[in-house]
Design a protein around this nucleic acid. Structure first.
Length: 953
RNA sequence: GCUCAGAUGGUGGAACUGGUAGACACGCAGGACUUAAAAUCCUGUUCCCGUUAAAGGAGUGCGGGUUCGAUUCCCGCUCUGAGUACCA
C-alpha cells in the first residue's frame, strides 16, 4: 500500500486516545520531566498556524524525553476568559460560556488532528468555576497578606495586626502605600474598625488604589491601549479620555528585588531576562525635595475662593515637590522643574495669570494615551504654572512647569530638569528659553545638544566644584540628609499591577463592601460564580456589566465588587493545577502537596516572547507569594524557557475617514486614495479579503456598525493596505492549519513547521516548501516497501556505509533536540533517507532504529512502520532511543580545503594522521599549488589540523 | 521615544567554538516515462564576465575596523518585527 496518511493518522490518534497512551502518573521510578506550553486563548477564529509551532516543538521534546526514560508531564488547557468572547457577546447577545465552549471544541478537534502526546485528563479551563475557585482563593490569600521587609517575605495579615495590637506601628518595615499612619498600640486598639480596615488596606498585597484609565464616555467603558487608536476608540471611533478610577491593584513592587535576583538562577533566553530587568527598572539615586516658595502660595491663597486650599495652606512650611533622580550630581544644573499635568499639586501651583494656559494644556493632555505621550519625543510642549520652587542646596528660584512627557504614575510624577545633561530637558529649555547651565568641565557642545557625561570635574556647582562624579555623590547625599531635603533611594520603574477590569467575562473578585470598605467573602462561599446579566455592556450609570446582575448581593445584603479579574489572573498559577491528577482535583487544594512535591516546577516552558513582561512576570510573582505562604516549594516556577518565534500574519487594513471634528465616520477609502483624506487605519479580517481586494458584502455583514458603511473605490475595487505583523485575533489575520492537514496530513505539518526555520525566529506564514517535506515521508515509506508497495524488509547484516548513515542521524537528532534546533533535524532526516535510498537499504537493523529516531517528529507514520516491523502497537512511545556509537563515524582521510589569502581554491585529500608540518610539506609539493604560487615562496602557511590550510602570498 | 530581536540566492533556510558561504528543501529551466496530463525519476540552478570545457572577478542589509582568514568578533548606520502595563 502507498503512504495513506489520512487513514493511518486517524487510526493512531484513535488508538492513543482509547488506550490513554499519554496518561501520566504522579509517581514513577523514572525521573520526572515537566514540559509545558503557554496555553492558548480559544478564539473564535480557531487555532492558527502559529500556535502549533511551539506545541510541535514541545511535543517533540516531550516524546524524546519519554524515549530517554523520563516520566513526562505534558498537559494542555485553555486560558478561556478574555475580551474577544465578551465583544462577540456584545455583538450577538450569545453568552460567552456558550461561544467559549464552541471555540474550545474547535481547538480540541484541531489539536487532536496534529497528534500531540498531551495528557488530556489533566486539562484546565480558566473560566471553569472549579478552576477559578482557586484563582479567587489566591486573591484572598493576597488580600490577607502583607510584605514584611524584615523577613523579606509575605506573611499573613494576622501577624501585622498582632504587632499593631502589641507595639503599634513603630518599627514595622513593610511594603505599603506612602501615607501610612503612625500610632501606638493603645491608639490602634481604640481605633474604630473602619479606620483599622482602612489602615490595613494600605498593607495588603491586593488593595484599592486610584489609577488612570482610558475612559470612553460614548461606549461607557474602559479601553485597553490596544483598543485606542489615534485618540479614538478602534470600535466606533469615539473620543477617549484619561480618567482616574478606584481599582484593585497587586503589590508586585514588593517582589521587585526578588524578581530581579531570581533571573540569575533560571535558564531563560538572555534577551527575555533583559526585558524583565528593564521592566523592573531598578535605579539607584536620590529623592530630593524642592520646597515651594511660601510667598507664591500665600498670594495664591489670597486670590483663591476655593476653601479646600486652606488645608494645604496650613502646612505651608512643608509644602514641597519631591523628585527622584539618578543624577543627583547635576542638581546645580537644575533650571526648572516639570510635573505631570495630573500631579495633585498642579491646581495649587497655578497662578491666576497662568490658569487659562494650564487648563488648556491639561485638556489637551487628557486626549493623549500614555503610549502617545511616551512615544512622542519630538514635539516639545508644556506650560508654566506661574509658581517657583527652591533648590534645597543653593536656594535658587526655579520655575515649575507642567509637561506631558512626565507621567503621573511613574515615580513621584515630577522631575528636576537639567538641560545641559538631558536631551529631553535640553529641547524643552531651548524651546521655552530657559537657562542651560554647564555643570561639568567634561560637557561638550551644550549649545547644540545635551551631554550626559559623568567625566570631568564640576563647575557652577557650589560646594562640589572641582570634585569628580564618584566624590560628589556621597557629599551631596550627606548634605541633603543634613538639611532633611532628600536621601539616597532605590527606585523601581515597575508599578503595582492594576488588577480590576470593568468587564464581564473574567473571574469575579471575591469581595463585598460594607460601609464602603472591602471585605472578603467566606472561603466556604467559593467559587463566587459569575452571575447572569441581560446585556454584556456597562450600566447606564457607567458601572461595569456585573452591575446589571439582578439580586446579586452577598448574604443578600452587601454589594459585591463589580469589576472582574484581568486576563493574566488565571494564567498566573495554572501549571500547578496540571500537577493534580483528575482524581485529585476534588481535594480541597489547588493541587495536593504530594503532587507539588513530586513535579516541583516546569522543566521546559515553551512560548512566545510577547509574554516577557506580562504573564511571565506575574506568574513568577504569584509563585513567590505562594511559596512565602508555604503552599508551593520552588522560588521560580519555570526552570528553562524557550521562546518560540512568532509565525507572523499578513494583515489587511481599511481606512476610515476622519471628519473635521476629529471623529471617525462610517466611510472608508481604498488604499491608493487614502492620502487625499484624513484617515485612521482599521484591521479587516484577512478571510474576507482576497489578493488584497475587500469583499464588500461580507464586510458589511461582519459587524452591525458596518452594515451601512460607504466606500470610496479605485477601479471599482476596494484595495486593502498590507502589513506583516503578529498573527492575532485582534488583528484579524488568523490562518488555521486544517486545510494543510487535509492535504498533506499531520506528520507533514509537524515536520514542515519545524523545517520553516529556527524555532525562536519569527517569520511570516507561507506554504512554499511543504511539498518537499511530504515527498520525504513518501520516500521514507518506500524504504520499507517494494515497487508494488508490499511491505518488505531484509534481515541481512548492515554494511559499514549503512551503519554510518544511521549513527550520523542518531547523533545529529539527539544534539539538535537538546539545543532546540528542530529545523536542522528535519534536513538531516532528508539527507539520511536520501542516502539510504541511494544505498538501496531495507535492512531491519537500520530501519527499526531510524523509526525510533524519527518517532518524536512524525509520530503517526512511525507508529505504523513500527507495528509493520512486528512490534507491539503503541509501544513506540515508550521505546528506548538508540545508543550512538562513534566508531561508525571515524574517518581516516580528509579533503583539506587549500586557500590562498583566505580564498578557497582547491581540495587535497590527506590522511587525518598527518601533523601540521607534514601537511604543509604535502601541500607545497603539490603541482596545482605550485602553479598558484607561480614559483614564489608563500609568506606564511597556516595549517589547522582537520580543518584548513591557508597560504599567505 | 525607550527596551529587545532580526537581515545570507528568485523563496524558506544551513554553516554548532573565527576555518570550504549557499547544506536540505521550494521554485525555475532542460530531459526521461506517457497519446496527453498528473505523479515519479534524472540533470542544472548565488551573481557578473566568458566558454566546447575552462579560467577569472564579486558576494552574507550599508559604511568602517580587528585577523593569515569574518555570515560569525568590535564601532557607526539603515530597514523590519516584538514589548511598552485593560489583547492574551
Amino acid at each position: 500500500m502507498d503512504y495513506q496518511f489520512r487513514d493511518l493518522e486517524k487510526k493512531w490518534q484513535q488508538f492513543w486516545a482509547e488506550n490513554q497512551t499519554y496518561k501520566v502518573d504522579n509517581s514513577s521510578p523514572k525521573p520526572k520531566y515537566y514540559v509545558l506550553d503557554m496555553f492558548p486563548y480559544p478564539s473564535g477564529a480557531g487555532l492558527h498556524v502559529g500556535h502549533p509551532l511551539g506545541y510541535i516543538a514541545s511535543d517533540i521534546f516531550a516524546r524524546y524525553k519519554r524515549l530517554k526514560g523520563f516520566n513526562v508531564l505534558h498537559p494542555m488547557g485553555y486560558d478561556s476568559f478574555g475580551l474577544p468572547a465578551e465583544q462577540y457577546a456584545i455583538q450577538t447577545g450569545q453568552h460567552p460560556t456558550l461561544t467559549t465552549e464552541q471555540n474550545i471544541a474547535t481547538y480540541r478537534r484541531q489539536l487532536d488532528q496534529i497528534g500531540f502526546s498531551f495528557d488530556w485528563s489533566r486539562e484546565v479551563r480558566t473560566s471553569d468555576p472549579q478552576y477559578y475557585k482557586w484563582t479567587q482563593w489566591i486573591f484572598m490569600q493576597l488580600f490577607n497578606s502583607w510584605y514584611n521587609l524584615e523577613t523579606d517575605k509575605a506573611e499573613p495579615i494576622e501577624n501585622l495586626i498582632q504587632r499593631f495590637v502589641s507595639k503599634g506601628s513603630s518599627g514595622i518595615q513593610a511594603v505599603s502605600d506612602d501615607e501610612t499612619l503612625s500610632f501606638t498600640a493603645d491608639e490602634w486598639r481604640l481605633m474604630p474598625e473602619r479606620q483599622q480596615q482602612e489602615e490595613l488596606l494600605k498593607y495588603r498585597l491586593t488593595f484599592l488604589k486610584e489609577s488612570t484609565v482610558n475612559w470612553c464616555p460614548a461606549l461607557g467603558t474602559v479601553l485597553a491601549n490596544d483598543e485606542v487608536k489615534d485618540g479614538v476608540s478602534e470600535r466606533g471611533g469615539y473620543p477617549v479620555e484619561q480618567k482616574k478610577m478606584m481599582q484593585w491593584s497587586m503589590r508586585i513592587t514588593a517582589y521587585a528585588d526578588r524578581l530581579l535576583q531570581g533571573l540569575d538562577n533560571i535558564d531563560w533566553p538572555d534577551p527575555l531576562k533583559e526585558m524583565q530587568r528593564n521592566w523592573i527598572g531598578k535605579s539607584t539615586g536620590a529623592s530630593v525635595r524642592f520646597s515651594l516658595i511660601p510667598d507664591a502660595i500665600k498670594k495664591k491663597l489670597e486670590e483663591s475662593e476655593d476653601r479646600k486650599v486652606l488645608s494645604f495652606g496650613e502646612d505651608l512650611g512643608e509644602a514641597f515637590i519631591e523628585v527622584f533622580t539618578t543624577r543627583v550630581d547635576t542638581i546645580f544644573g537644575v533650571s526648572f522643574l516639570v510635573v505631570a499635568p495630573e500631579h495633585e499639586l498642579v491646581p495649587f501651583l497655578t497662578t491666576s495669570e497662568q490658569k487659562e494656559e494650564i487648563e488648556n494644556y491639561i485638556s489637551q493632555t487628557k486626549k493623549k494615551s500614555e503610549l502617545d505621550r511616551m512615544a512622542d519625543a519630538k514635539t516639545v510642549s508644556g506650560a508654566f504654572t506661574g509658581s517657583y520652587a527652591l533648590n534645597p542646596l543653593n536656594g535658587a528660584k526655579i520655575p515649575v512647569w507642567i509637561a506631558d512627557y512626565v507621567l503621573a504614575g511613574y515615580g513621584t510624577g515630577a522631575v528636576m530638569a537639567v538641560p545641559s545633561g538631558d536631551q529631553r530637558d535640553w529641547l524643552f529649555a531651548n524651546h521655552f528659553n530657559l537657562p542651560i547651565i554647564q555643570i561639568l568641565d567634561g560637557q561638550k557642545d551644550i549649545e547644540h545638544e545635551a551631554d550626559a557625561t559623568k567625566e570631568g570635574r564640576y563647575l557652577n556647582s557650589d560646594f562640589i566644584n572641582g570634585l569628580t562624579y564618584q566624590e560628589a555623590i556621597p557629599a551631596l547625599i550627606e548634605r541633603l540628609e543634613q538639611l532633611d531635603a532628600g536621601k539616597a533611594k532605590i527606585q523601581y520603574r515597575m508599578r503595582d499591577a492594576i488588577f480590576g477590569r470593568q468587564r464581564y467575562w473574567g473571574e469575579p473578585v471575591p469581595v463585598y463592601f460594607k460601609d464602603g470598605l472591602p471585605y472578603l467573602i467566606d472561603e466556604q462561599d467559593l467559587p463566587l460564580v459569575l452571575p447572569e446579566v441581560d446585556k454584556y455592556l456597562p450600566t447606564e450609570s457607567g458601572e461595569p456589566p456585573l452591575g446589571r446582575a439582578k439580586d446579586w448581593k452577598y448574604r443578600d445584603q452587601y454589594e459585591y465588587e463589580l469589576s472582574t479579574m484581568p486576563g493574566w489572573a488565571g494564567s498566573s498559577w495554572y501549571w500547578y493545577r496540571y500537577m493534580a491528577s483528575p482524581e485529585e482535583r476534588s481535594e480541597n487544594a489547588l493541587a495536593p502537596q504530594s503532587a507539588i512535591e513530586y513535579w516541583k516546577d516546569v522543566d521546559l516552558y515553551i512560548g512566545g516572547s510577547e509574554h516577557a513582561t506580562g504573564h511571565l512576570l506575574y506568574s513568577r510573582f504569584w509563585n513567590k507569594f505562594l511559596k512565602d505562604l508555604g503552599y508551593v516549594n520552588e522560588e521560580e516556577p519555570f526552570k528553562k524557557l524557550i521562546n518560540q518565534g512568532m509565525i507572523q500574519g499578513r494583515s489587511n487594513f481599511i481606512y476610515r475617514i476622519i471628519d473635521d471634528e476629529g471623529k471617525g465616520t462610517n466611510k472608508f477609502v481604498s488604499n491608493g486614495l487614502k492620502d487625499q483624506y484624513k484617515t485612521s487605519s482599521v484591521h479587516v479580517d484577512v478571510n474576507i479579503v482576497e489578493n488584497d481586494v475587500l469583499d464588500l458584502d461580507k464586510f458589511r455583514k461582519s459587524r452591525e456598525e458596518y452594515s451601512d458603511a460607504e466606500f470610496i473605490l479605485e477601479n471599482g475595487k476596494y484595495i486593502c493596505g498590507v502589513e506583516v505583523e503578529k498573527m492575532s485575533k485582534s488583528k484579524f489575520n488568523v490562518v488555521n492549519p486544517d486545510d494543510i492537514i487535509e492535504r498533506y496530513g499531520a506528520d507533514t505539518l509537524r515536520l514542515y513547521e519545524m523545517f520553516l526555520g529556527p524555532l525562536e525566529q519569527s517569520k511570516p506564514w507561507n506554504t512554499n516548501g511543504i511539498e518537499g517535506v511530504f515527498k520525504f515521508l513518501r520516500k521514507l515509506w518506500r524504504l520499507f516497501h517494494d515497487e508494488q508497495f508490499n511491505f518488505k524488509v531484509s534481515n541481512e547484516e548492515p554494511t559499514k556505509a549503512e551503519l554510518k548513515t544511521l549513527h550520523k542521524i542518531i547523533l545529529k537528532v539527539q544534539e539538535d533536540i537538546e539545543r532546540f534546533s528542530f529545523n536542522t533535524s528535519v534536513s538531516s532526516f532528508m539527507i539520511c533517507v536520501n542516502e539510504l535510498t541511494d544505498l538501496k537499504c531495507n535492512k531491519r537493523k537500520i530501519l527499526q532504529d531510524l523509526v525510533i529516531v524519527l518517532a518524536a517528529y512524525a509520530p503517526h507514520i512511525t507508529e505504523e512502520l513500527w507495528t509493520l516491523l512486528g512490534n507491539e502497537a503503541g509501544s513506540l512511545s515508550y521505546a528506548t532511543y538508540p545508543k550512538f556509537n562513534p566508531d561508525y563515524l571515524v574517518e581516516d582521510e580528509f579533503a583539506y580545503p587549500i586557500s590562498f589569502n583566505g580564498k578557497m581554491k582547491m581540495n587535497l585529500n590527506m590522511p587525518l594522521t598527518l601533523e601540521a608540518a607534514e601537511i604543509e610539506k604535502f601541500v607545497l609539493e603539490n603541482d596545482d599549488v605550485q602553479k598558484y604560487l607561480d614559483g614564489k615562496a608563500p609568506k606564511k602557511v597556516i595549517v589547522v589540523k582537520g580543518k584548513i590550510v591557508n597560504l599567505v602570498v
